Simulated scan of single mutants.
Amino acid sequence: MNIPVLENDRVKLSLLDLSNYSNLTEIAKEDKLIYYSPSDISTPEKLREYVKVAVKGYYENTIIPFLVFDKLNGEFAGSTRFGLIDYTNKVLHIGWTWIGKRFQGTGLNKNMKFLMLQYAFENMNFEKVEFRIDERNLKSRRAVEKIGGTLEGVLRKNTIMQDGFRRNTCCYGLLKNEWPDIKSTIFEGY
């Protein structure tokens, strides 16, 4: 599989693996960083397990995990990935995204999403990108809506969280034929 490095003036996304994940150990300890995720990265051991799952998916051609480097601040900021990659139907998910609290609201995430959407539609030539978000995570839902994501439905009580709660998952999508308009309006100047 081709390993993309996605980069602009603000952010660099490179392959996350077991040789570099320790750059995220301190950020991963932040309280409730991935509260709306069924995953747990709160200790170095749990973070390593999280990365091992991503690496396994990478070798199975279903995941491309990224290490996020904030070029503006010269610091590692978090992680994101392409997941549930379906090469036959040309559909993938963007998600498993978490960045340290000091990087949130700075434009870093929008730069990340631009690079990932651009790569999915323009390089991989995929037809659809999906996002799955906990119904309660209004901040992430608004962010996906701001970049043009359309709410396609809600999967009811489909995911068990760390505390045993069964969450509803909102499914958003962007289509390849929507990308040029989204790119020229929402991401103008990227």
Score class of each variant (00 low, 15 high):
Ile3Gly: 02
Ile3Glu: 12
Pro4Tyr: 10
Pro4Cys: 02
Asn8Met: 05
Asn8Glu: 02
Lys12Pro: 02
Leu13Tyr: 12
Ser14Tyr: 01
Leu15Thr: 02
Leu16Phe: 09
Leu16His: 10
Ser19Tyr: 12
Ser22Gly: 00
Asn23Met: 12
Leu24Val: 06
Leu24Thr: 04
Glu30Asp: 10
Tyr35His: 11
Ser37Gly: 04
Ser37Arg: 05
Ser39Ile: 01
Pro44Lys: 14
Lys46Thr: 14
Leu47Gln: 06
Lys52Cys: 11
Val53His: 08
Ala54Cys: 15
Tyr58Glu: 05
Tyr58Leu: 15
Asn61Gly: 02
Thr62Gly: 03
Ile64His: 04
Asp70Ile: 03
Gly78Glu: 03
Gly83His: 14
Leu84Met: 15
Ile85Asn: 10
Asp86Phe: 08
Thr88Met: 10
Asn89Val: 09
Asn89Phe: 13
Val91Ile: 14
Trp98Leu: 04
Gln104Ala: 02
Asn109Glu: 08
Asn109Ser: 13
Asn109Pro: 07
Lys110Asp: 01
Lys110Cys: 02
Phe114Ser: 06
Leu115Thr: 00
Leu117His: 09
Gln118Phe: 00
Tyr119Pro: 08
Ala120Val: 09
Ala120Thr: 04
Glu127Thr: 03
Val129Lys: 05
Phe131Ser: 06
Ile133Lys: 09
Lys139Glu: 14
Ser140Asp: 07
Ser140Gly: 00
Arg141Leu: 12
Ala143Gln: 06
Val144Pro: 07
Glu152Phe: 08
Gly153Glu: 10
Val154Cys: 08
Arg156Gln: 05
Lys157Trp: 03
Lys157Arg: 09
Ile160Cys: 11
Gly164Trp: 12
Gly164Thr: 03
Phe165Lys: 12
Asn168Thr: 03
Asn168Leu: 06
Asn168Lys: 02
Cys170Ala: 10
Cys171Lys: 00
Cys171Arg: 06
Gly173Gln: 09
Leu174Lys: 02
Leu174Asn: 07
Leu174Glu: 01
Leu174Ser: 02
Leu175Met: 14
Leu175Cys: 08
Glu178Tyr: 10
Trp179Ile: 01
Asp181Ala: 08
Asp181Tyr: 13
Asp181Asn: 06
Ser184Ala: 03
Ser184Glu: 15
Thr185Gly: 02
Tyr190Arg: 08
